[in-house]
Design a protein around this nucleic acid. Structure first.
Length: 265
DNA sequence: GGGTGATGCTGAG
DNA sequence: TCAGCCTCACCCC
């Protein structure tokens, strides 16, 4: 679920439904009961997506920090909504809408210092910053780790997940084993702009569809069946959409990565 | 219907 | 280093 595009979609939806309103906040599960009672009745001033983090800034300098982790999920409903399950960590509610949060890795009330610490540990977010920051170029130039590892480091670039790292490197024809510091200026620039473009498209589609539809004989991205939506991710042993070489996979940064040894060499 | 791994990451040990 | 979050999609029976 949660690469940067998912987080941005949630932030946009919650901005529409909740921003500027006093919210009823509760925790049916109980694990966020103390935090919920401190937010209950306060006006939500701003919802912010930063990489894979959600920040809900309430009046009184109180911020709710949510990170979905692997299994976390936000369900948002116009009222009437079904009752939240007893496992629901957090409920945000107005007279018109409700959002239910289950299974998050993080759901905490934090202060300004903590907000700055979280944001300070994140690299630039391609969905937030249009021009490629110098910090990104510098980080890659000084990093000898494989680019496949570096792209998952949220301190280098925020919001890219395991699907996007495989797909962006495929689209740019870059072998994931290449040390980041060996990339040319053009390759660094292309990685940023492709990551930004694909993340933006992910926000639009609500799904990660990187394959150009005409390349595989479809008219629109939405028409593509699941197995044709990506070039490399989870396609181990299957033929590359472009050159028919078998897609390979290996572990990198503790997780599987997929690439085409012919197109990315 | 049951088992399992994953679009992540933290914090206990 | 690894359990944990406790959901969902996919596979196998």
């Amino acid at each position: 679920m949660p690469a940067g595009h998912t987080i941005r979609r949630i932030a946009d939806r919650h901005t529409d439904l909740f921003e500027g309103q006093a919210l009823r906040v509760s925790s049916p599960q109980g694990r966020f009961a103390a935090g919920a009672s401190r937010l209950d009745g306060r006006v939500l001033q701003q919802v912010e997506a930063r990489g894979k983090h959600l920040l809900y800034h309430f009046e009184g300098r109180r911020t709710l920090h949510v990170h979905l982790g692997l299994v976390g999920r936000f369900q948002t409903h116009r009222l009437p909504a079904p009752a939240p399950s007893p496992a629901t960590r957090l409920v945000l509610r107005t007279d018109d809408a409700a959002a239910y949060l289950t299974g998050p890795m993080k759901c905490d009330l934090i202060d300004r210092t903590m907000v700055e610490r979280i944001v300070g540990h994140l690299g630039p977010d391609p969905l937030k910053v249009s021009r490629r920051p110098k910090a990104f170029d510098d980080a890659l130039a000084g990093d000898h780790r494989p680019i496949g590892t570096v792209l998952l480091d949220q301190g280098v670039v925020a919001g890219i997940g395991n699907v996007y790292r495989s797909e962006v490197l495929f689209l740019e024809g870059i072998d994931p084993h290449t040390p980041a510091s060996d990339l040319t200026a053009d390759q660094v620039s292309a990685i940023w702009s492709t990551a930004r473009e694909e993340l933006r498209r992910g926000v639009e589609d609500g799904a990660i569809i990187t394959v150009g539809p005409r390349e595989v004989g479809a008219a629109t991205r939405r028409e593509l069946p699941a197995e044709l939506r990506r070039y490399a991710y989870k396609r181990s042993g299957m033929p590359c959409h472009r050159c028919h070489t078998q897609i390979r996979s290996t572990e990198m940064a503790g997780r599987q990565i997929w690439w085409c040894p012919e197109c990315q060499s």
